[in-house]
């Protein structure tokens, strides 16, 4: 309290020269900030920012890989990207993937968080167990789920057969309409745990008295969920949504392991196409264009979302 008074007093005295003082304070802050920021920024600039800028430069060249001479070709790679139907297809898939990840991983996280929060005795057990898939690396997730989805010997189709639901068995990874969804389920299995933990924490922060008040007003369970719980989760929700969108956009490993974009490009994401362009086809120029596209998308989504979130908060 005393501190607050002192600062207020100081501010009051300083008011006539406020602009000048602010500038000086800013400079002072900068001098203290530099040594604290330097370790992080030095590493980050060298191993992340520099490669990002080099990629940008590559997108204007005809580079075909290591040690080959690359010359400046202007916007021709951008023209090729625009004319390549697979680029457009993979762009659509990337948005479908992102949305699927948001709904499946985010949704499952929310539902399980709501259910787990109702537990007392066994809460920790369930919370811990549900988080386990998140500990598995995505490459391993791909190997496990490719075996689960095997049309002839897989866990899923075999289980359906045994349950007498053989009619439901599918070519989970061969059907053009199913494949992206199937891989996304595997990816969401790995991803939902983190979102669930965040939602559980958000639920703990909701004021209990709100529920009591709602009870007195005669609200049933659904109404409590709708009018108390979900609004109370708004802040966590925005955090989870932004995290899930970024993770969705970065989706790569499960598709790479399970289908490598196939069959016939039906599960191609921008990231998997970049990888094959660079490593199989040695077309580094076009790959770089797609990197630029992906980065632009990521930044665009983040900015738009933050803007929307800011307006919502107001």
């Amino acid at each position: 309290m005393a501190t607050r008074l002192t600062t207020a007093a100081r501010r009051g005295i300083a008011r006539p020269k406020v602009a000048h003082r602010a500038r000086r304070a800013g400079r002072e802050a900068l001098t203290s900030a530099i040594p604290l920021l330097l370790p992080a920024l030095a590493i980050y600039a060298l191993f992340s920012l520099l490669p990002i800028f080099l990629t940008f430069w590559l997108s204007f060249t005809d580079s075909r890989g290591l040690n080959t001479s690359a010359s400046f070709v202007g916007l021709s790679n951008y023209g090729r990207a625009a004319a390549d139907p697979i680029v457009w297809q993979s762009l659509v898939h990337t948005f479908q993937w992102l949305l699927g990840h948001l709904l499946m991983a985010g949704g499952l996280g929310l539902i399980l968080a709501l259910a787990v929060s109702r537990l007392r005795l066994t809460r920790v057990v369930f919370r811990t167990a549900f988080f386990l898939p998140h500990l598995v690396s995505l490459a391993v997730v791909g190997v496990i789920w490719a075996n689960i989805y095997d049309p002839f010997y897989g866990l899923l189709n075999t289980a359906l057969d045994r349950l007498g639901l053989g009619a439901l068995s599918q070519g989970w990874l061969s059907d053009p309409l199913l494949v992206l969804f199937s891989v996304n389920v595997a990816s969401s299995w790995q991803g939902f745990g983190l979102y669930m933990l965040l939602f559980i924490a958000g639920l703990q922060n909701i004021d209990h008295s709100l529920y009591e008040a709602a009870e007195i007003d005669g609200a049933n369970g659904w109404q409590q969920l709708w009018y108390v719980t979900l609004p109370g989760l708004a802040e966590v929700m925005t955090f989870v949504v932004s995290l899930a969108m970024i993770n969705g956009l970065k989706g790569f490993a499960t598709v790479f392991v399970m289908t490598n974009g196939g069959p016939f490009y039906q599960s191609e994401l921008i990231t998997t196409y970049i990888y094959r362009l660079a490593f199989s086809m040695q077309d580094h120029g076009l790959a770089a264009v797609l990197c630029v596209l992906l980065s632009t998308l990521a930044i665009g989504i983040t900015v738009v979302f933050n803007h929307w979130r800011g307006r919502l908060a107001r």
Binding site: S174, D175, P176, G261, G262, P263, F264, Y265, Q266, R276, S280, M281, Q282, D283
Partner: peptide
């Protein structure tokens, strides 16, 4: 050539999944 072979593999998948 390397830039053709990726398409080559993809279209075989396309035939086998009866897409093309």
């Amino acid at each position: 050539p390397a830039s053709v072979v990726d398409t080559y593999f993809q279209v075989i998948q396309g035939i086998i999944s009866a897409q093309i």
